[in-house]
């Protein structure tokens, strides 16, 4: 099987800082990581490869630095890495991103063979849209299985796959045909560590690097800012609420404090007392 996994290098958002005065983003030194959701998809891809044989290709679109993430994916066990990088891609929204990635996947199919399954992450932690995967599926006309909790069965010969897909109130067991696009749910598997020999291989591996032109993209108007129907008009910090909390007086004894709090609460929100009495009675 040839399995393709789209991964994205993202800033570790836990470490993004906002300049408290100017409200601008301080990018200095914010480390980048592989989008955590993508790792569950990568692991699932490796499991299928280990089971059925074949190759796993990882693909990312991003700045040259994104090769770090590809190398990490190789160290985890992927067989091949492709970096799609071009300044024309800057400012891509989900539609332009899925276009560029799709073109690269077509080129990968021509060069290394068509993938039987394309995995993407459920969503990214920076864009957070969960739309790039469905976008790719639509453009490549792949059957789409998002929020997959488990791959129940895969039969590469019959070209069939059965998965459990999470829906709001339960789980759908779906059966569909390969090729398809899958996004895995977080926690659906445990991402492996990667063997020492993979780490050594990854450190030296050559990363296939394509510009837009290399990937066969002729129509630049579909890429980057130009190809993005959405436009970010402004970025701003959430405005503070006009007034701060009303402070309840403290007391030496906790029970007095509790009384103070409840009194204040019901004074300021008279309707609550009835509401609470009703809800409390329900239990």
């Amino acid at each position: 099987m040839h399995i393709l996994v789209c991964i994205k290098q993202v800033p570790d958002s836990a470490q993004i800082r906002i300049n408290p005065v100017t409200q601008t983003i301080m990018r200095q030194g914010v480390p980048t990581i592989i989008n955590p959701y993508d790792l569950f998809s990568l692991e699932e891809a490796l499991r299928l490869r280990d089971q059925f044989g074949g190759e796993v290709t990882v693909l990312t679109m991003g700045p040259p630095m994104a090769s770090d993430s590809l190398r990490k994916a190789l160290a985890i066990g992927a067989d091949r890495a492709v970096l799609l990088t071009d300044r024309f891609f800057a400012g891509s929204d989900t539609l332009a991103t899925s276009f560029a990635l799709t073109q690269a996947i077509v080129k990968i199919s021509e060069t290394f063979g068509a993938p039987d399954i394309v995995f993407t992450g459920k969503q990214t932690i920076d864009g957070d849209t969960a739309q790039v995967g469905p976008g790719i599926a639509k453009r490549l006309d792949l059957l789409q299985l998002t929020y997959v909790a488990k791959i129940v069965e895969c039969d590469p010969d019959k070209r069939e796959i059965i998965v459990e897909r999470r829906s709001e109130g339960g789980v759908h067991v779906l059966k569909t045909k390969l090729p398809c696009l899958i996004t895995m749910l977080e926690g659906s598997n445990e991402v492996r560590r990667g063997a020492m020999k993979d780490a050594l291989r990854a450190a030296r591996a050559e990363i296939v690097t394509w510009s837009a032109k290399d990937a066969g993209i002729a129509d630049m108007t579909k890429c980057g800012l130009k190809g993005s129907p959405t436009v970010v008009k402004k970025v701003f910090a959430p405005p503070p609420r006009s007034e701060r909390a009303f402070f309840v007086p403290t007391a030496d004894v906790a029970s007095q404090e509790a009384e103070n709090l409840i009194t204040t609460l019901f004074e300021r929100q008279p309707a609550l007392e009835q509401d609470l009495t009703t809800t409390a009675a329900g239990f």
Partner: peptide
Amino acid sequence: RTDRDADTI
């Protein structure tokens, strides 16, 4: 030896 596996380098 590393925490990756039992291989010695």
